[in-house]
Simulated assay, not measured.
Amino acid sequence: MDIQTIKERIAAVESKRDYLLSLLEQPNLGTLRIDVNQALEELDELVDEFKRTIPQTENN
């Protein structure tokens, strides 16, 4: 897998963050709120680790 494909996949995953945030606003989420919070934390860690590993430049 080339670096451009990885960047595109990370961008696709990162775009799902807003959806997870919107789920937290649902009043009937119940105990699933814990899972959504965990998913947000893990997504943020994944994106942060990717950005540390593959520095983003304007040319990429």
Rank of each mutant, 00 (worst) to 15 (best):
Q26V: 13
D2T: 03
T53R: 02
A11F: 00
E58T: 15
L32D: 07
A39L: 04
Q38F: 00
T57R: 06
E42A: 13
E8P: 08
R9A: 02
G30Y: 02
P27G: 14
L24E: 10
N60A: 06
T57E: 05
N37W: 00
Q26C: 13
P55L: 00
Q26L: 10
I34R: 15
A12L: 12
T31V: 05
E8T: 15
D44W: 02
R52A: 13
N28Y: 02
E45S: 11
L23G: 08
L23P: 10
V47C: 00
N28Q: 11
Q56S: 14
I10N: 08
D35Y: 05
K51D: 07
L23Y: 04
T31Q: 09
L20G: 09
Q38I: 01
N37F: 00
A12Y: 03
L29M: 06
E45C: 08
R9F: 01
E25P: 06
L43N: 11
R33P: 07
N28E: 13
L20N: 03
E25M: 06
E42L: 11
I6D: 07
K7L: 03
D44N: 13
G30W: 00
Y19I: 10
A39S: 11
L43H: 04
A39N: 02
A12P: 08
I6Q: 14
F50I: 01
R9L: 07
Q38V: 00
T57N: 06
S22K: 15
T57V: 10
N37T: 00
I34L: 08
R9V: 01
V13N: 04
D48Q: 10
D2P: 15
R52N: 13
A11R: 06
E45M: 02
T53A: 04
G30M: 02
E45N: 14
N60Y: 04
Q38R: 15
R52E: 13
K7S: 13
Q26K: 15
E45A: 06
I10F: 02
A11W: 01
A39F: 01
P27M: 11
L43T: 10
K7V: 03
I6K: 10
L29W: 02
E14F: 03
N59D: 12
T53I: 01
R9H: 06
E14H: 11
E8V: 07
V13A: 11
I10S: 09
A39T: 03
T53M: 09
T53S: 14
N37I: 00
V47I: 08
L46V: 12
I10K: 14
K51S: 09
P55I: 00
R17E: 12
L20V: 02
D2S: 11
T53N: 06
L21A: 09
D48M: 08
E58Q: 15
R52H: 07
E14S: 14
R52F: 05
L40R: 09
M1T: 00
